[in-house]
C-alpha cells in the first residue's frame, strides 16, 4: 500500500508543477483536477474516505466547474497565450523559485531532524466525523454558514449589472 501513496504523491507534485507552468488556463485547470484527484487517493489511503469523497465532489467537481465557467465567459484567445509567454520569462520566475527552494530545503531539514517513526493509519468514517462536527465544533458549522451567506451576497453584489444612467434617447443619438 505504501507504493500507492508514493505514486499518488509523485503524480500530485508533477501535476501541480504543470499547473503553475502552463500558458493555457484550461490546460492548467485540467492538471489541477488531476492533482486534486491524486490528493483524494492520498486521503483515502490515510483513512479518511469521507474527506476523499468531499475532495472529489466539491473541489474537483464544484469549484473547478466555477473556474471553467469563468474562463469560458472571459473567452481568452490566442493573444492571451502570447502575452502569458511574455510574462513567464526566466527573469520573472527565477527569484521566487530560488527563495521557495531555500524554504523547501529548510523544511526538509527540520522534518528529517526528528526520528522517523511510522504510524498505521486507521479508518475514521463519516459517522465519527459527523459526531465531532455537530458536537464540539458546532459553533464552527454556524460560522461557516455565515461565511457562505456572506460569500453569496458578495458574489451577487459584484456580479450585478449596474443600470445605465444615460437615457436611451441619448444612447441612440450617440450611435
Amino acid at each position: 500500500m505504501q507504493i500507492i501513496f508514493y505514486i499518488a504523491a509523485i503524480i500530485a507534485i508533477f501535476s501541480t508543477v504543470m499547473v503553475i507552468t502552463r500558458l493555457n488556463a484550461v490546460h492548467a485547470l485540467l492538471y489541477l483536477i488531476v492533482s486534486l484527484l491524486s490528493v483524494a487517493v492520498i486521503f483515502f489511503l490515510l483513512g479518511a474516505p469521507f474527506i476523499a469523497a468531499l475532495e472529489i465532489i466539491i473541489y474537483a467537481g464544484a469549484i473547478m466547474v466555477l473556474f471553467i465557467f469563468v474562463i469560458m465567459m472571459l473567452n481568452l484567445g490566442r493573444e492571451a497565450k502570447e502575452q502569458e509567454s511574455q510574462w513567464l520569462k526566466p527573469s520573472m520566475w527565477i527569484g521566487p523559485a530560488i527563495l521557495a527552494a531555500i524554504i523547501l530545503v529548510q523544511l526538509i531539514y527540520v522534518l528529517m531532524a526528528n526520528q522517523n517513526e511510522t504510524f498505521n493509519s486507521t479508518v475514521i468514517n463519516a459517522k465519527q466525523v459527523g459526531m465531532s462536527l455537530f458536537g464540539p465544533y458546532l459553533i464552527g458549522v454556524e460560522l461557516s454558514a455565515i461565511l457562505l451567506l456572506a460569500g453569496i451576497v458578495g458574489a451577487y453584489h459584484l456580479g450585478r449589472r449596474k443600470k445605465a444612467s444615460v437615457h436611451r434617447f441619448f444612447e441612440e443619438a450617440s450611435e
Partner: peptide, 25 residues
Amino acid sequence: MISISIETGLLLSGILFLLGLIGLL
C-alpha cells in the same frame, strides 16, 4: 491502511504548498 511516517506526509504537504506559493508569486 498504510504505515508511513508523519514527516513524509508533511513533506508532501509542504512541497504542494510551496508550489502554490511559487505560482502565486
